[in-house]
Design a protein around this nucleic acid. Structure first.
Lengths: 256, 256
DNA sequence: CCAAGGCAAGAGCACTGCTCTCTTTTTAAG
DNA sequence: CTTAAAAAGAGAGCAGTGCTCTTGCCTTGG
């Protein structure tokens, strides 16, 4: 599929990659606003109009970079999680969050591209959705594992939020209880509040030891969604149907 | 001071205001990236170079708009708070948060300007700090009132965060205990995570009933910083007592 | 082998931010 | 009241942008 399709096709994918690489370089150096098609073309020794054979517009180039950024972030988070797969749920959660933070600090402009203000009239096409979902799915996975295996506390859920929570549950994680899904979604958004404030400099002269602060904040977030530190907590863990791993499919809505 | 110091000076402030108004119009219509000095000048019937007598560069115009946006948001939050000054602390907190959300939804491009990705090489000058602090100070004030008057729970504070928390306390609110200040700062950042996700469309197809969801999330945030519902604590603050059954399905709905 | 289509190049359009002159108008000092 | 300085507007111009269109070259599939 991707090999030996003729020299021309190979050259095309190669040049496409080169364009993205150079664009990413300029993005990292100057930010999305200063990314110029002409400058990219110049740097690659081609004329600006030639670039339109590969990307029909500047926004399409940006879209490609956005997807790549989501994937890069997703991969960073996933590989960090893989290394902590055996840890406590809270530990897994904070590991993922810290990977997100580290990636964001290492790639501030790419982070701004995906979690900052959306570009002018541009609205992300659906093609970005899978890549954009990776971190979210990862967090869902962490919570799911805790829910199935080692127990999880159920956050409070006011009556007026229940319908919405059940809808979210149906969409995102049909196996998790609605109160956990609702808490998870809000923790998800709040995580990016913390990261964004740090990356965008809002913590300037407010928080100094940001790593420690961040770790604490996301640990609280983990507790907020109901994750528990296994051994040493006074809080009573909820065990789904009290049967451990055997009946994962049947175990939802425990407390009746 | 601002009156009758010559026709020229009056004309200057008037024109300056007109420029900002028109710029704000274009900002709301198209976003910061498409804000063009020439277009503003054109709309005002002046030539582009004349505009440089009022703002030395496009970035300076943006800075002015940023300060105005911060002030506009601050004022919205403050006036909302003033109307709820007698309510429970949690109520005051959610009122302020909801005012922030409402303002952001009503002025998405201005919100993006101040809490989205910072513009290219531009870093906000110190002159923006006072305006930018208004919402933060307001939230501190809410917590302070609760701390002085009606009591407040003290969130947990791990040992390694204590020095940082004490430093933040010294800077921001010397009268509040460090654990409360630390929780407050993280809640502050998380608030903007929630608002940003909604304004920037990240909740698309994830959260539908966003008002209800937001209210619940910021109520949890209030509990996170230690605010209590005075009379009835149907919802115990951020301490899920396990045993899903008991959690007050009845209603929180802190009314007055 | 040879037509078809992918591809690069270049010119050009309508913009942009910004600078520099030049002229007019207003202000303030003598 | 005059006059010199300061402030403001107008216009041309520079270097840059995204994007389109036409013109040819050259690889490729039939």
């Amino acid at each position: 599929m991707s090999t030996a399709r003729g020299a021309r096709a190979r050259a095309r994918t190669e040049i496409t990659a080169a364009i993205k690489d150079e664009a990413r370089r300029q993005l990292a150096a100057e930010g999305a606003a200063k990314l110029s098609l002409r400058a990219v073309a110049r740097e690659l020794g081609m004329v600006s109009s030639a670039l339109y054979r590969y990307f029909p517009s500047r926004d399409d180039l940006l879209t490609a970079l956005i997807i790549d950024a989501y994937d890069s972030l997703g991969e960073a988070a996933e590989s960090a999680h893989a290394k902590a797969a055996d840890a406590e749920p809270v530990q897994q959660w904070t590991t993922v969050c810290e990977a997100v933070r580290a990636w964001a600090l290492a790639h501030p402009h790419e982070y701004a591209l995906i979690y900052g203000s959306p570009v002018p009239g541009y609205s992300a096409p659906d093609s970005t959705v899978p890549a954009a979902s990776r971190v979210g799915l990862l967090l869902i996975g962490v919570v799911r594992e805790a829910w199935e295996g080692r127990g999880i506390a159920r956050p409070p859920l006011p009556a007026d939020l229940r319908p919405e929570a059940e809808r979210m549950m149906a969409d995102l994680a049909p196996d998790l209880p609605p109160e956990v899904v609702a808490a998870l979604v809000s923790a998800w958004a709040q995580l990016y509040g913390l990261v964004g404030f740090e990356v965008f400099g809002q913590f300037h002269r407010v928080v100094e030891d940001r790593a420690v602060f961040f770790t604490h904040a996301v640990t609280q977030l983990a507790h907020h969604v109901g994750l528990l530190n296994h051994g040493r907590t006074a809080e009573t863990p909820h065990r789904p149907q009290g049967r451990g791993k055997g009946t994962a499919s049947g175990g939802r809505r425990a407390g009746s």
